[in-house]
């Protein structure tokens, strides 16, 4: 049996193990909630679980080397990464969960690959995981940027009209009308 077949045959198991690992790492608040994430399969009634499912599926598929594009994997991981970016955890923990697939692979696939001398394809799979984590890192950073920007923009927007009025009446830097097109939106 070669590596793609291993990936295919163990799909359900591996996804379950990885998902469990993610749940186990949800911060301290999650005490006693093991039953929660599976309680509803509805993507709107239980969005958190749906995000993890979507991410797990895409992550696994991409690591397995299935035909996919960066855009597709990125889109599938996006909600998951964004949720973790606003949960109370360090960045390493937020994204480190993706790496939890590694020990699972090493335990299940590596021995077989080593036995059959097919280490190259195994290493390639691990490298794909590395790339995906870097991709997720980009998304994570972008999400944090968005948040920081949202804070600033919110304060600005809250007083948007007052600021204009103050400028117009207080002799501040002149603004000719509000030409939204020239404002950084």
């Amino acid at each position: 049996m070669n590596l793609p077949e291993f990936f295919r045959d163990n799909r359900e198991d591996m996804l379950r193990l990885w998902t469990d690992a993610v749940y186990a790492g949800i911060p301290f608040e999650a005490k006693g909630l093991s039953g929660l994430p599976g309680t509803a399969a509805d993507p709107f009634a239980n969005p958190g679980a749906d995000m993890i499912r979507e991410a797990a599926d895409a992550l696994y598929g991409a690591v397995a080397g299935e035909e996919t594009t960066v855009a597709d994997v990125g889109a599938a991981l996006e909600r998951f990464v964004k949720l973790r970016a606003v949960q109370r955890m360090t960045p390493s923990r937020a994204l480190g969960v993706l790496y939890l697939l590694k020990p699972l692979m090493r335990e299940r696939f590596l021995p077989h690959c080593a036995a059959s001398g097919d280490l190259d394809s195994y290493l390639a799979a691990e490298s794909r995981l590395d790339s995906l984590v870097l991709l997720a890192f980009d998304m994570y950073t972008a999400a944090r940027e968005t948040l920081a920007e949202a804070r600033v923009r919110e304060i600005r927007d809250r007083h948007a009209q007052i600021t204009r009025w103050a400028r117009a009446s207080g002799g501040g830097p002149p603004v000719a009308g509000r030409d939204k097109k020239h404002q950084a939106r």
């Binding site: 599976g38 309680t39 399969a41 509805d42």
Partner: peptide, 11 residues
């Protein structure tokens, strides 16, 4: 509006 569920639907 149930989405097509991937492999894992949780125990």
């Amino acid at each position: 509006a149930r989405a097509g569920l991937p492999a894992n639907s949780g125990p």
